[in-house]
Design a protein around this nucleic acid. Structure first.
Length: 660
DNA sequence: CCGCCTCGAGTTCT
DNA sequence: CTCGAGGCGG
């Protein structure tokens, strides 16, 4: 990037970041996620590193934001309340230790150890006790002066009004937060009343504490952990926590002393595993130099203490740039726009593409090629574009238009509802995609036959349709470039081993529009043979449950097509269709299941089959009608929905017990 | 005809 | 996993 360009970009970035920081610190509001804001800050930081001449004093990298609100009485903090610098990787933490080591002498360096705490997504407050009685409680404010919120803090049960101490003055700091359950409850209430939702538990906690009416604060069931005690210059952070406990404060039982960085990293990984099970939200861990004397010697830079760092969990959002929008042609001929992104790391994975679904979506989001956007990988795997930063537009962005002609075969496209289609049934893209579908897991499930190999087979005219796969011989493959004897053999035997197939999978493999896994099973159960299905009338199809006029006509049309009939006859000669497996018992009759996350002892497919064998139903989405949600590792958003709807959640072993 | 539920289709990356 | 659309009951 050229300097002139960088200068403009920096100016705009500063404006946006400052705007969002002000919202966050002063008004307890959030329009974009922490992760997205972090990502913007990182871009600014990197640009400033590259062009140090362009650093200005008003840059968020240089100063603290957040002035106290006028409506509260001001309180000067006992000692400045610092915030924390962030680390996003082990490398960041390593370089933090290296950096601070330079400020210490040899002997001190050897004595470095750590104390680790969960970083709760809440609001930091300071509490002043005189003769053991709570006198003043305040928010952080700008770090020097905060707001007096004593009345509101008094309503929190976890904050003791009286503590055991002989000291005249005791100053402690801690985090006010609320449980995920309370958070969901409050947002449900907001939704009902058509009010804007709280973006995070921190938001809600902060909003509740900064209420003028403490009755409202009281109704929110806030919670509190203490994490710091002012004083004890020669002790350790660990001792501070022990002392706090003795005095009658609530401290988190998850916190640990760590001798070295290895133990710190173990703590971090454990915390990540615990995260789901905790009743409140955490966004990382806080790593603190344990020996107070060393911590104090390290002092601070700007707004943050040097002796502690916030080691954040990988965020689910990041900021990137749309470099291009390309079109993909699917199996049904649907054209889908895909954004080509400047690669960014989100949640430990590099993302370079994201689907835009359809034209309406692009218009709804107001996206142009060249836009800076927030990209998300929430809970799941699939990246999604959340929104563009219109403020970052330079005027060079390009409007995107859906193509008038299919980018693969050149035929004029047709629009149906929101989607554009390529109407050419011989379109190469459609043909290829149908082929992939045929060998896919839920169809013939042929291992080792990926898109790359299929492309080559088609290119060399070794196969004209999927039926030809079963006539392939080793000798056909070996002459192909870079095809070893052994791998050719593997593929051939892999194809041979899947020659037998159940009727439902066979129907699914045909790739009829509107006929997926479930509908294929319904058809198989109704007709019992492919012949019966072939000869069925449209009315017969429509009489089957779950099949209406649209899908029945797709099916009818598919079987009326001469080319399809020929292909089907050819296919029937090379494969062996067996009947669909009958259910073995009625143990789970009437019960419906939804799966989320990864199972350990069996695959999801096997688990689903098990349910069906026992007469149960498997559904893909959570609704009131679901009986059980089976919870695996790394669950997705279904867990949240199930919790909201109060559906019974069971673990893998409970599920297996249920089946046995 | 509306609203809820479920299915199908498309998609990412290790 | 998410979104849109098809199916179906009220």
């Amino acid at each position: 990037m050229k300097k002139e360009e960088a200068k403009k970009r920096i100016k705009k970035l500063i404006e946006i970041i400052n705007y969002h920081r002000r919202l966050y610190h002063v008004f307890d509001r959030q329009e974009i996620s922490d992760a997205a804001l972090d990502s913007l800050k990182k871009e600014l930081f990197d640009l400033e590193q590259k062009f140090p001449q362009l650093i200005t004093p008003d840059s968020p990298t240089q100063r603290v934001g957040g002035k106290p609100l006028e409506k509260f009485k001001k309180v000067k903090h006992f000692e400045k309340m610092f915030s924390l610098n962030d680390a996003f990787s082990k490398e960041d933490v390593n370089s933090w230790v290296e950096r601070i080591s330079k400020l210490l002498d040899e002997e001190e360096k050897k004595r470095i150890d750590f104390y680790c705490e969960l970083k709760i997504d809440g609001l930091a407050v300071e509490l002043l006790y005189e003769e053991g009685l709570l006198k003043i409680g305040s928010t952080r404010g700008d770090g020097i002066i905060g707001e007096d919120v004593t009345q509101n803090l008094r309503t929190i049960e976890a904050i003791p009004l009286k503590i055991k101490t002989e000291e005249k003055k005791t100053v402690v700091r801690g985090e006010v937060f609320l449980s995920s359950e309370e958070f969901i409850k409050a947002n449900k209430e907001r939704k009902k009343r058509d009010l804007p939702l709280y973006a995070s538990p921190r938001n809600l906690a902060a909003g509740s504490i900064r209420q003028l009416d403490s009755k409202i604060t009281s109704s929110r069931n806030l919670d509190f952990f203490t994490y710091d005690l002012i004083g004890l210059p020669n002790g350790t952070h660990k001792e501070k926590h022990e002392k706090l406990k003795e005095m009658g404060f609530r401290v988190s039982s998850h916190n640990r002393y760590c001798r070295n960085l290895e133990e710190v990293y173990n703590f971090y990984e454990d915390a990540q595993k615990k995260r789901e099970a905790l009743s409140y939200e955490i966004d990382g861990v806080v790593v603190i130099i344990n020996k107070n004397e060393i911590f104090n010697k390290l002092g601070s830079v700007g707004k943050a203490s040097r002796g502690a760092i916030a080691f954040k969990f990988p965020g689910v959002q990041a900021v990137s740039i749309i470099e291009d929008i390309r079109i993909q042609v699917g199996r049904t001929g649907a054209l889908t726009p895909v954004a080509v992104l400047k690669p960014v790391k989100i949640g430990g994975v590099i993302v370079s593409k994201a689907t835009l679904h359809n034209e309406d979506e692009i218009r709804r989001l107001n996206l142009k090629i060249g836009d800076t956007v927030i990209v998300e990988r929430a809970g799941d795997v699939i990246p999604d574009i959340v929104k563009p930063f219109l403020e970052l537009r330079t005027g060079k962005e390009k409007e995107f238009k859906m193509p008038e002609f299919c980018p693969v075969c050149g035929k004029k496209t047709k629009k149906e509802k929101v989607l554009y289609y390529c109407p050419n049934r011989n379109c190469y893209a459609i043909f290829k995609r149908s082929f992939y579908h045929f060998v896919s897991k839920k169809a013939f499930d042929i291992d080792g036959l990926g898109p790359k190999i299929i492309d080559r087979l088609i290119e060399k005219k070794l196969v004209l349709d999927p039926a030809d796969l079963f006539d392939l011989k080793k000798e056909d493959l070996v002459p192909l470039e870079r095809f070893a004897d052994k791998s050719a053999e593997n593929i051939i035997s892999s194809i041979k081993s899947k020659r037998k197939i159940t009727l439902d999978r066979f129907i699914y493999a045909l790739g009829i529009r509107g006929v997926g896994e479930e509908t294929a099973r319904d058809l198989a159960n109704n007709f019992k043979s492919i012949k019966a299905l072939e000869d069925s009338a449209k009315e017969e199809l429509e009489a089957i449950g779950n099949i209406g006029p649209v899908v029945s006509s797709f099916i009818y049309k598919w079987f009326s097509d001469i080319k399809n009939r020929k292909y089907l006859e050819k296919l029937k000669k090379v494969v062996e269709i067996s009947n669909i497996k009958e259910t073995k018992s009625e143990k789970l009759k009437g019960k419906s299941f939804v799966f989320t996350g990864e199972l350990n002892s069996i695959t999801r497919e096997k688990a689903k089959e098990k349910v069906r064998m026992l007469g149960g139903k498997v559904s893909s989405s959570v609704s009131e009608n679901i009986d059980y949600l089976v919870l695996g590792d790394n669950p997705g958003s279904k867990l949240k929905r199930a919790k909201e709807k109060e559906i019974k959640i069971i673990k893998e072993n409970d599920f297996l017990k249920l089946c046995s």
